[in-house]
């Protein structure tokens, strides 16, 4: 009983914080670049694609065997560098790509393509197709 009351109190507190601290931030090229390079300072970004909802960005890197992924699951940013095609799968759907990252703590991502030419994305995502990457590369 005490656990249920605690859980209800937690939900109430979480909603209170959601109401008082609404999250309006979206990804911008500057935020994507700054945060990705903070995580991977030895990488060079060639091109940034941000999805229509401003929650996900894919980055073409000078190192064409990998692709950058920047997510904003809430008000904070999460970055990953993914070896092509070892560490993720992509399946196209209606006006979007579903990115399934082979990472326990990164949920499937819906990347709304919008105005981005699909062939440019596809070219990037297939660039390192023959590369299998290091065993422990993250």
């Amino acid at each position: 009983m005490l656990e249920i009351v605690s859980l209800l109190a937690i939900i109430a507190l979480a909603y209170l914080t959601g109401w008082l601290f609404p999250n309006r931030l979206q990804l911008t090229e500057e935020r994507v670049r700054r945060n990705f390079l903070r995580c991977y300072p030895d990488q060079q970004i060639a091109e940034i694609f941000i999805d229509d909802e401003g929650r996900t960005a894919l980055l073409r890197l000078q190192n064409e065997q990998s692709v950058g992924l920047v997510l904003q699951p809430s008000d904070r940013i999460v970055c990953r560098m993914l070896t092509i095609p070892v560490q993720f799968d992509i399946s196209p759907t209606d006006g979007a790509l579903i990115i399934k990252v082979h990472d326990y703590v990164v949920p499937d991502v819906r990347f709304s393509i919008g105005n981005i030419a699909p062939d440019r994305l596809e070219e990037m995502l297939r660039a390192g197709h023959d590369n299998k990457g290091g065993q422990y590369a993250t």
């Binding site: 979480a14 999250n23 008000d75």
Partner: peptide, 11 residues
Amino acid sequence: VFEKKDTFTSM
């Protein structure tokens, strides 16, 4: 600064 999902998960 707080965030709804973060607060929920922490608690």
